[in-house]
Design a protein around this nucleic acid. Structure first.
Length: 475
RNA sequence: GCUCCCAUCGUCUAGCCCGGUCUAGGACAUCGCCUUUUCACGGCGGUAACAGGGGUUCGAAUCCCCUUGGGAGUACCA
């Protein structure tokens, strides 16, 4: 059987990192198995679904490098791929179930339903005990519907134990009576998630359902539904959930939870994908920096962890830094520019920009950090902090300062060349007889006001001469 | 409440299915040292875990049971 998997988001918000993670797993699994990955939009929640969220979720997935073979935009032979466009299909299946006596219209009032729910809680009674599940009331119910009354259609849950095999959880069993007759068609005529999800997975030929653990209880219902429509069960893999530092459900207060936010903060898509993939799945060679497309040959469903993973971004930042470090300069130059918010940078030559980037490439974890390094580079005044005071108190430092200031005034170009700067250093060494720490630290102090920082021989030729002059003058 | 699931360093995890090779391995974070006369990178090293209790066994992180703790679901949301 060929592998077909799907990612089925609800367009009710931005793409969540949890959703992105399951999408990622589906995508990689399809790649690894030479199968197809399908995108299906589950927009049956009329109130909350919007086209804007649909578009933004697809956009964010593409950004992360998750592509699909069939979907609402690029089509496919199993379309349509938007549930709101498949309503007649669900209706047909619902009618079949109704006619086969596997579903019934329910006219219970809200009060009655509430009472049942209460009873379930208190006494452990079966969840739905309304009279409408009994055959003798079916004719009456159908007549009322025919007469125009609205009622939800419930699936008549058979009184049997249910079990299914799961790639991460093994054999999962539910005793009979765990779920009550659940709604498959709302009184508005719109089907519910449990129902269309099953029909679509069946019709779309889905072979493996990889989704979050929060769906195991739905799977119980869905197994019953598969049996009712006479469809073969797909294979299941219920992946553990992501939780926050406080071991609570991941929410806004744990920081950024949407892919969009990471994207805007300058995280690399390959780094986010890399990190998300590692939360609950492990590389057989224990590698932790990789590109998801490299995973095709090693990705298997038996390497999922059963327990929850706490989402903690420290490692994400490290991984992001690793991916930056691995980039070649041209790519880095191209990709980071949108996160640099200084006109000065844009006004420089490509050569300058690349030198600057090369200097900081292995120091940063995130592109926006480049901005603070730029600011540091452009600072034209120096604070007399303790470090600088100490440097200036050395007897060698005033000589360096005087010499540098004098040299600076002779420079006619915008920048000191690397050669020129080397000459200055040599002069200090040979003529001023300064060497070692007093030389390097002295120069750094005089020129930058700092006692630490990147390689002076690269840094100084990157700094505009005007700024160097102002700094030295302010001493 | 009920149903289902989970439990290895602070965090992500390897090992568990097929008990001995585990004085429990890796990574992030943290600490120290080396390197770079600075910082960062890098290298080396340290601190740090099998939730608890019972079994089974010559032997258990690995198998079984209980307890405790955590999570999910329990909608005319998905």
């Amino acid at each position: 059987m060929s592998v077909r998997v799907r990612f089925a988001p609800s367009p009710t918000g931005y793409l969540h990192i949890g959703g992105a993670r399951t999408a990622l797993y589906n995508y990689i699994f399809a790649k690894a198995q030479g199968g197809k990955c399908i995108l299906r939009i589950e927009d049956t929640d009329e109130q909350r679904s919007t086209k804007e969220f649909e578009a933004s979720q697809i956009d964010d997935m593409n950004w992360m490098g998750i592509t699909y073979d069939e979907g609402p935009i690029n089509g496919g032979e199993y379309g349509p791929y938007r549930q709101s466009e498949r309503l007649d299909i669900y209706q047909k299946y619902a009618n079949n179930l109704l006619n086969e006596g596997l579903a019934f219209y329910d006219f219970c009032t809200e009060e009655e339903l509430e009472l049942m729910a209460q009873k379930t809680k208190d006494e452990g009674a079966p969840p739905y005990t309304g009279k409408w599940r009994d055959k003798e009331h079916w004719d009456e119910a159908r007549k009322r519907v025919a007469a125009g009354e609205k009622a939800p259609l419930r699936f008549l849950v058979p009184d049997i134990d249910v079990e299914f095999d799961d790639f991460v959880r093994g054999n999962v069993k539910f005793p009979k009576g765990t779920v009550g007759d659940f709604v498959i068609m709302r009184s508005s005529g719109v089907p519910t998630f449990s129902f269309c999800n099953v029909i679509d997975d069946h019709l779309h030929g889905i072979s493996h359902v990889i989704r979050g653990e929060d769906h195991v209880n739905n799977t119980l219902r869905q197994v019953l539904l598969y049996q009712a429509i006479g469809a073969e069960l797909p294979k299941f893999a219920h992946v553990s959930l992501l939780i926050g530092k406080d071991r609570q459900k991941l929410s806004k207060r744990h920081g950024a939870t949407s892919v969009r936010q990471y994207r805007e903060e300058g995280y690399l898509p390959e780094a986010l994908a890399n990190y998300l993939c590692l939360l609950g799945w492990s590389h057989p060679d224990e590698k932790d920096v990789f590109k998801i497309d490299e995973l095709a040959s090693v990705f298997t469903l038996d390497r999922f962890s059963k327990s929850h993973a706490i989402y903690d971004i420290e490692k994400l930042q490290w991984i992001n830094g690793q991916h930056i470090k691995q980039m070649d300069l041209d790519e880095l130059h191209k990709r980071c520019s949108e996160f640099i918010s200084h006109d000065f940078y844009e006004q420089q030559s490509v050569q300058w920009q690349k030198t600057f980037l090369g200097l900081f490439q292995d120091k940063i974890h995130l592109f926006p950090e480049l901005n603070s390094h730029l600011e540091e580079l452009l600072k034209d005044s120096m604070d007399m902090n303790d470090d600088l005071k100490e440097i200036m108190s050395w007897e060698t430092s005033p000589a360096i300062k005087d010499y540098i200031q004098e040299q600076l005034n002779t420079v006619k170009t915008d920048y000191v060349s690397a050669e020129q700067f080397s000459e200055w250093m040599n002069y200090c060494k040979k003529e001023l007889k300064i060497k070692g720490k007093p030389l390097f630290m002295g120069l750094r102090g005089v020129l930058t006001g700092q006692n630490h920082g990147p390689d002076l021989k690269v840094l100084i030729p990157l700094t505009p001469v005007e700024i160097l002059k102002k700094r030295v003058a302010s001493l």
